[in-house]
């Protein structure tokens, strides 16, 4: 019974799966993907653009993974460790709400807009832009700065509101337990 066709196939399937490390269908799907990629690659070669294409294709992954990502990850870590940040208050006292997201969010949004629109903002395509539209790219830097300014201002206002609310809540407790807290601070 154990040597009939279906069970032999099943055994071969299991053997392949064990050797390969996943369901053989996984391999089949990936081979189909590589086949289509290979065919598209022949079209790229036929178009006579393969060198630039490969450089930009692989370069796109490298620039994102090894340049862009480390860049924003390191700036985020640096911002969180701000050397200019005040020392933590002694434990037991309610700390001020963290300001990191009020810095992080507008900076990231502004950075995203710059990442997408840097040719316009920095005027890098000014010549082709003028040939096409009859206009120049000069307004874009100002517009980006304006949006950036609005984002940071909005964030600062949100943080101020947050701080005020925090003080209102924290004040009674501060009175009771934290004589070192600044009594003269304006707290509405």
């Amino acid at each position: 019974m154990s040597d009939d066709m279906p069970s032999r196939i099943r055994r071969a399937y299991r053997w392949t799966a064990a050797r390969y490390g996943a369901d053989p269908l996984h391999l089949l799907a990936l081979l189909a993907c590589f086949a289509l990629t290979g065919y598209a690659a022949t079209r790229v070669v036929a178009a006579g653009i393969w060198v630039g294409f490969v450089v930009w294709f692989v370069g796109a992954a490298i620039v994102h993974d090894l340049l862009l990502y480390p860049l924003y990850a390191v700036s985020d870590v640096t911002a969180q460790r701000r050397p200019w940040r005040r020392r933590r208050r002694p434990s037991g006292h309610p700390a001020r709400p963290s300001s990191i997201n009020y810095l992080r969010v507008p900076a990231a949004l502004s950075g995203l807009l710059l990442l997408i629109w840097f040719p316009l903002i920095l005027g890098l395509a000014g010549d082709t832009y003028h040939r096409s539209t009859g206009l120049d790219t000069s307004p874009y830097l100002g517009r980006w700065l304006l949006v950036t300014g609005v984002l940071f201002a909005g964030s600062a206002i949100a943080y101020a509101i947050r701080l005020r609310r925090h003080r209102v809540v924290a004040r009674p407790r501060l009175h009771a337990r934290a004589p070192r807290s600044p009594r003269s601070s304006p707290s509405g």
Partner: peptide
Amino acid sequence: IQLFYVFPFSFYPAHLYGAWIFLAA
């Protein structure tokens, strides 16, 4: 779309064939 043609290839074939490779993956 920003008319910043820095890539060393024509946009049409590169964006089309690149799309097929991306979509397969």
